[in-house]
Computed example of a mutant assay.
Amino acid sequence: MMERCSPPTSPHLFSTSPRCFRKHPRALVLQRSHMSVNSSSFSNASHISNRRSFLCFDSPDGTFAFLTFATANFLLLLPLSILVIHVGFQRWTLQRSTSSTRVTSHTDVFTYHMVAMEFFTLLGSGLYCVADFLRNEQIMIAGFYLFSIILPGQTNFHCMTCIERYVAVVHPITYLGLRKTSGVRIRNISIGCVWLLSVGWMHVTYIHLPYLAVIPLFLFYTVSLLVISFCSLSVLWALRHPSPGDRSGDRVRVDQSKQRAFHTIMAIMGVLLLKFSGHLICLVIYRSTVAVGRDPCFVLKSSFWLSLPSSLVLPLLFLQRAGKLTCCKNNTASGQGSK
Score class of each variant (00 low, 15 high):
residue 160 M to N: 08
residue 101 T to V: 04
residue 259 Q to T: 13
residue 84 V to P: 07
residue 39 S to C: 09
residue 125 S to A: 14
residue 179 R to A: 00
residue 176 L to T: 03
residue 125 S to E: 12
residue 136 N to I: 03
residue 316 L to Q: 03
residue 49 S to C: 05
residue 59 S to Y: 05
residue 182 S to T: 14
residue 166 Y to D: 02
residue 186 I to E: 01
residue 257 S to W: 02
residue 160 M to E: 09
residue 129 C to T: 15
residue 266 M to W: 06
residue 251 R to G: 00
residue 144 F to M: 11
residue 235 V to T: 04
residue 9 T to F: 15
residue 134 L to T: 08
residue 97 S to Q: 14
residue 129 C to K: 01
residue 2 M to E: 11
residue 286 Y to D: 05
residue 153 G to Y: 01
residue 166 Y to W: 15
residue 229 S to W: 08
residue 212 L to C: 01
residue 200 G to K: 09
residue 4 R to A: 11
residue 320 Q to V: 07
residue 20 C to F: 08
residue 80 L to N: 06
residue 73 N to E: 14
residue 130 V to E: 03
residue 218 F to E: 02
residue 40 S to A: 15
residue 243 S to K: 06
residue 168 A to K: 04
residue 24 H to F: 15
residue 311 S to Y: 13
residue 23 K to V: 04
residue 317 L to C: 09
residue 217 L to G: 00
residue 201 W to V: 11
residue 89 F to V: 14
residue 295 D to Q: 02
residue 91 R to M: 14
residue 171 H to M: 12
residue 224 S to H: 08
residue 95 Q to L: 10
residue 221 Y to M: 12
residue 265 I to T: 04
residue 104 T to G: 01
residue 291 A to R: 04
residue 195 W to N: 04
residue 59 S to V: 08
residue 259 Q to S: 11
residue 147 F to D: 01
residue 63 T to P: 00
residue 71 T to Y: 09
residue 327 C to I: 15
residue 192 G to C: 10
residue 331 N to I: 06
residue 294 R to Y: 10
residue 62 G to T: 06
residue 207 I to E: 09
residue 212 L to V: 08
residue 285 I to G: 00
residue 317 L to G: 04
residue 202 M to T: 12
residue 188 N to R: 15
residue 232 S to N: 05
residue 285 I to Y: 02
residue 198 S to G: 13
residue 62 G to C: 09
residue 199 V to G: 04
residue 325 L to Q: 03
residue 196 L to E: 08
residue 336 Q to P: 00
residue 280 L to F: 13
residue 209 L to P: 00
residue 99 S to I: 02
residue 133 F to T: 12
residue 227 V to R: 07
residue 298 F to N: 00
residue 170 V to T: 09
residue 223 V to Y: 09
residue 99 S to A: 11
residue 224 S to F: 07
residue 244 P to K: 15
residue 54 F to M: 10
residue 197 L to S: 14
residue 261 A to T: 07
